[in-house]
Simulated assay, not measured.
Amino acid sequence: MDEQNMPASALVSVRGLAKHFPSGSGRLRKPRAPVLRVLSDINIDIIEGETLGLVGESGSGKTTLGRCIIGIHRVDAGAILYRGRNGSIIDVCSMDDARLRAMQRDVRMIFQDPFSSLNPRMRVMDIIGDALRVNGIARGTELEDRVAEMVRRVGLSPDKMRRYPHAFSGGERQRINIARALILEPRLVIADEAVSALDVSIRAQVLELLKQLQAELKLTYLFISHDLSVVEDICDRVAVMSQGDIVELADTDVMYRHPQHEYTRTLLRAVPIPDPRLRRLVRQQTSPDTTQE
């Protein structure tokens, strides 16, 4: 892959990415079973310091793309170029397991479900600090101090570090998930439906926390969501996915005011808007008759 295809401002560049899965699994999988195309020829840049939204309905491929970028899924074609801390450009798809694990210290993920994503048998201190221990970064008192500082950053009290996940609310558990993702001081955080399981008031608090942490820690976010109202609040740019393809990519304010693709307009029309006057305005803006193609 030609490194000149990667913009100087990009932290990650995805080029020609394709990912397929067998249509069956286990005993149901036939030797010549057809494959399910999940991603097809994806091209996108994640600019350092931005929050890029990735939206689409369930099954559109957005979560698969996030998992390919972090290396959970191996791709069938294309390249994922990552700019390292020293400025060197590496193709994630060609990394061996050892180099991939090292890269995954820089690229972390916040998962959707704040309940099932935390081991109920581990204390919060161990959940957050495990990555420090596994990577040989800190142990003992130093590890506890670093975990305590991160717990404070996400708005929880260090006094609760020795408790188990069941002692926390859903919003607090998601803050623990955020702390776990940030404890290794990553550069890119992939937030996969990170607030979809939270009620509206808690969701707003967690979004504000994510914005605050981004400013303090100079983070880059890939924010995956099906909720366009959430994406509008936090994202600089938005990519819209449908059936494994990116059908539209634009600055957030431009896309919400002048969506170009019919699928984007359909998603925007589905966003609930309490104010009837504003609702009529949005419907007018997303009508095919008033939108330039």
Rank of each mutant, 00 (worst) to 15 (best):
A18W: 12
R175I: 08
R162P: 06
M150F: 05
K62Y: 06
P31C: 13
E3L: 07
D106I: 04
R101H: 12
V14W: 04
T220C: 01
L118Q: 06
G140T: 08
F115E: 10
A179Y: 02
G136E: 10
E293R: 15
S40N: 13
I90H: 13
S157H: 05
G129D: 03
I190Y: 00
S196R: 07
A181G: 04
Q260I: 06
P120G: 06
V271D: 09
V189L: 00
A18G: 14
V240Y: 01
S60K: 02
A204F: 05
V240D: 03
R83I: 05
M125N: 09
G49A: 09
D145C: 06
V200C: 08
N5R: 14
S9N: 15
E50S: 10
P274T: 10
R180H: 08
G84D: 12
R173G: 03
S169Q: 06
K19S: 11
M255W: 01
P120L: 03
A204C: 11
L11H: 01
E208Y: 13
V75G: 01
P274W: 08
R121N: 15
G129I: 08
S23P: 07
I224F: 04
E216C: 04
K160M: 15
A138E: 08
S94I: 06
A167K: 09
F168E: 01
E208I: 10
Y164A: 00
T51M: 02
M103A: 11
R139Q: 15
M255E: 03
G87E: 09
G244E: 03
L207D: 02
A18E: 11
D41T: 13
S9H: 13
R277S: 13
D253S: 14
K160A: 13
E172H: 04
L217S: 09
I80R: 01
L184R: 04
D289P: 00
P34D: 13
I46K: 02
F115W: 14
G61A: 12
S25K: 14
R163K: 13
C68E: 05
A148W: 02
I47P: 00
K30D: 12
Q4G: 09
F115G: 02
D130F: 10
Q214G: 02
E208W: 05
L11E: 02
Q292W: 12
L228H: 05
A131F: 06
V271P: 01
A33T: 10
R29E: 15
T286C: 12
A179N: 03
R32K: 13
S242K: 12
L207N: 02
A215E: 15
I128H: 04
V35I: 09
R83F: 03
R27H: 12
I89A: 07
T51I: 08
C93N: 08
R237T: 08
L100P: 01
V254G: 04
M6F: 06
